[in-house]
Design a protein around this nucleic acid. Structure first.
Lengths: 237, 237
DNA sequence: TGGGTTTATTGTACTTTTGACACTATGCAA
DNA sequence: TTGCATAGTGTCAAAAGTACAATAAACCCA
């Protein structure tokens, strides 16, 4: 048994943001002078960092996200650890690693977390983000550094499973929302269509989705009733 | 950003074994002279090891299991990474760590895998195991070293989910099995009872469970028909 | 050889859930 | 007032799930 003396551990965060415009993921654009190359273009990557020596995994993920978005208390869930010995050895990623790491040749195992934020209200304003950080539509993500495309795919699958088995939709919606918004969210994340009447039938069975005495305003059509989530009534299903 | 210079990574394996006697887990009994103490008694722990410097995570889990059971090709699935900074700092675990590790104070993050083997045929004979290794009924597991009880619980939940969503039961059964054995397996793992007729109705819809022209032998009651799995017909459901 | 013991095997009626499907209502703008 | 856009609503049929009990086959033993 040889101890693994020099091996690094990081967390990578797949932060999903949602608004009426679709599902997006937070990506970091590598700086021009340090970028890795994909056919000559700078690449993007998932936010992540080496964990500190006394820091828990989830705490590290929270730190990474807070540094980028200044938002605390995001829903965060670990979904997979990626440990291919060569996952940071690809030629395309060498330049970037050399520019930011003291030990660029070190093997790095990473633990993937996905997080959820609503972009409806005005929570994490793009303005409050560090430069070079942007929301990219989930369907328009190009090649990413390292194995980040497969981490992203893992996160999407985990998100889909979680949405189908746990009540997490309120993490992605405004506090007050319409049933159409809720349905759009399901259709976007699960990438399939639902029948409007059947969908609403199912929602009405969920005691944690409560109708408000309030209607949508400022729309040029019939205003929809607003609903909200009652977190006390989320049964573990 | 401080690099995490001295931090170790391990895999821990929860190897489930199943036979008509129930669901068991493979545990290692710490040696008398090195044991940690739980009210004065030696403790058990999950098999695990630090990963080698050039070894993938799954490869490490395979190696750990092979060293113990001499069996290759077990079904293995990663389920969670455990990274509490204090997870190997508990007083009860110090003695054991000092006896086997060159750097016993090092923080260790571990990635949990669960594995499945059938104990029916004669696959991994207890005889072929290293000394101090034993199958313990899942309902009779006492306090384990480190955070291994919570790792075990995580593995059980992952196994239950996997059994309900994927066709993995054949990993735990003999090549030829009866429908009662199959039902017992489901009842044991999911810890709930099924109606015999309804259960069989559902099985008959699964095209990968195929009846053989063969019956149980040597039983003093009506012999049951034998079935086997056709792996080609396992649809991804 | 016949009766007792043990487990295997099978079908039906009822309830619940799912899935398909189309029209009316409301508010705003032109 | 009309047109436009989206909200909101019920029924029927099919499928899936659930509860439930009598007969069949092999062995053992007296």
């Amino acid at each position: 048994m040889q101890p693994n003396e020099s091996l690094h551990l990081s967390v990578d965060c797949v932060l999903f943001g949602y608004d009426d415009d679709g599902l997006k993921v937070l990506l970091i654009n590598q700086k021009e002078d340090t970028y890795a190359h994909a056919q000559g273009r700078p690449m993007s990557q998932l936010p992540g960092d080496l964990i500190l020596i006394d820091e828990g995994l989830e705490a590290a993920a929270e730190r990474v996200l807070f540094e980028l978005t200044q938002v605390n208390g995001v829903y965060l869930k670990q979904f997979h650890a990626y440990g291919d010995p060569d996952r940071v050895k690809d030629h395309k990623d060498r330049a970037w690693l050399r520019s930011v790491r003291t030990m660029p040749d070190q093997r790095v195992i990473t633990v993937g977390y996905f997080g959820l934020v609503s972009l409806h209200d005005h929570s994490p304003q793009p303005a409050s983000f560090a430069g070079g950080v942007s929301w990219v539509d989930i369907n328009e993500v190009g090649p990413l550094a390292f194995d980040h495309n497969s981490i992203l795919n893992g996160a999407i699958e985990a998100l889909q499973t979680q949405l189908e088995t746990h009540h997490i939709s309120f993490e992605l919606l405004p506090k007050k929302f319409t049933l159409s918004q809720l349905q759009d969210l399901y259709e976007t994340v699960l990438d399939k269509k639902f029948d409007k009447r059947n969908f609403r039938k199912n929602i009405k069975k969920m005691s944690h989705v409560v109708p408000l005495d309030e209607k949508q305003q400022g729309v040029m059509h019939k205003p929809a009733q607003l609903f909200s989530f009652n977190p006390d009534q989320i049964e573990n299903a």
